[in-house]
Amino acid sequence: MHRKVAFIGSVGSGKTTIVENLSGFAPINTDVEATENIGKKMTTVGIDFGQIMIGEDLSLGLYGVPGQRKFSMVWEFVKTGLWALVILVKNENQESIEELSHLLSFFEVKEGMPCVIAVTHCENASADTTIKQIENIIKRYEVSLPIYTIDPRRKESAMLIMHTLIAIDETT
């Protein structure tokens, strides 16, 4: 069985890294050089595509999509047939936190849909305030979503998300 998981979140939240970390093969990468200062050299403009096998039967297609709203055409493409969504939020980054509302609406996240919110960049600061703000936002959408603090560079972090998505799917 093949299922489609999308990774979305603001620029620099770790989408490309998490797909690279999880994929069983070198992911298809569509990063290009950033012409504006976005805090990093490269940025995704298409899709980062990877794949991971969970057991013998389940293959998860991993789709990392650009964070900037102007690339919402790519979001539309990934949304079709989507099984699960991972929203990455940068710790203590107001823009990234506020973008969450837009993403929940765009991807029509409803109770029972496998969806996880992952807070990144927590290495040097507590994520307590960010998590509280996220909880307030998701309350408005009447959904209860797991919120994790993760390091996208660590495979255990990334796998925790995958197993949570599967658990949500199995219990609904």
């Binding site: 298809i28 990468n29 569509t30 290009v32 403009v45 298409g46 899709i47 595509f49 650009p66 900037q68 102007k70 690339f71 055409m73 790519v74």
Partner: peptide, 12 residues
């Protein structure tokens, strides 16, 4: 935005 996404995907 659309042409940059499509071109990146085409290149890949």
């Amino acid at each position: 935005a659309v042409t940059s996404s499509i071109t990146a995907l085409s290149q890949a």
